[in-house]
């Protein structure tokens, strides 16, 4: 646990520096966009946040499956500790998208498939937290939370594919694994850096939050007393 603490602080500072450098690069070094002008620069917040918000849900689903199949208690703690962080990143994605919408679409909000499905993801995160907190028996709560997370994971492909299945205002993904990126390399490098930096920061938050969760749940065990 002490080694984890040390590694954790290294990861946090490296990611923070990486994110700040990418933001600085994206805001001041990269040129203006031909169509969107300066407003596109919000992608250095919007894209990492929405990318991470979906990835966190997938991480939760994997942890839930591990908990339900192998009964690993730690992964249940992980599910519970990811949920609030996922809600926050989804919220950041929604708000930054709204702010981006004003100069490019001329509106804060449209009832568009991608945006609505992201809002659903946000509501799902809140629902998961409230479901878990409504049970006083933590073991049952963990079980039900994991089931709901697994069932709710059907939403993730819907969010991902919404820009391709429905005709929406939201632009399709600029970076895909298979195709050449639709975004110029000058803008891509800081974007990539900001995604990695943001992911690192969020990972550290998840570690911190799950540490808190372990301390809270195992507070009566002797090894916790030795640690604290």
């Amino acid at each position: 646990m002490y080694q984890v603490d040390r590694a954790y602080s290294y990861i946090f500072y490296v990611s923070l520096v990486l994110y700040l450098v990418s933001i600085f690069w994206g805001l001041f070094v990269t040129p203006e966009d031909f169509v969107q002008g300066n407003s596109y620069r919000i992608i250095y917040l919007h894209v990492p946040a929405s990318f991470i918000s979906q990835s966190l849900y997938i991480a939760m689903a994997i942890a839930s499956a591990i908990f339900l199949i192998w009964k690993v208690k730690l992964s249940a703690y992980l599910v519970r500790s990811i949920a609030p962080i996922g809600a926050i990143t989804t919220f950041i994605a929604l708000i930054s998208g709204s702010i981006w919408g004003i100069p490019t679409w001329g509106t804060w909000w449209v009832w568009d498939a991608r945006i609505v499905s992201t809002l659903i993801l946000f509501i799902m995160y809140l629902g998961l937290i409230s479901l878990h907190d409504s049970f006083s028996n933590h073991e049952k709560a963990d079980k039900f939370l994991s089931i709901l997370v697994l069932v709710g994971s059907v939403n993730i492909p819907i969010i991902k594919m919404s820009v391709e299945w429905w005709s929406t205002l939201h632009q399709p993904a600029s970076i895909t694994i298979s195709d050449k990126p639709a975004i110029d390399l000058v803008m891509l490098y800081p974007l990539f850096g900001s995604i990695v930096g943001f992911a690192g920061i969020v990972a550290c938050l998840v570690i911190l939050s799950s540490k808190l969760q372990i301390l809270r749940r195992e507070r009566n065990k002797s090894w916790i007393k030795n640690y604290v």
């Binding site: 498939a113 609505v116 499905s117 659903i120 509501i123 799902m124 629902g127 998961l128 409230s130 479901l131 409504s134 049970f135 039900f144 089931i147 709901l148 069932v151 709710g152 059907v154 939403n155 819907i158 429905w166």
Partner: peptide, 28 residues
């Protein structure tokens, strides 16, 4: 019914409220 089973002992609508977002894509 799935949502209801989740919050069975609670006797509340919380479970169904939590599963409601799953149905929203269907409304589209």
């Amino acid at each position: 019914s799935f949502g209801n089973a989740l919050s069975l002992t609670k006797g509340s609508v919380l479970g169904t409220l939590v599963t409601l977002p799953l149905l929203l894509p269907l409304l589209i």
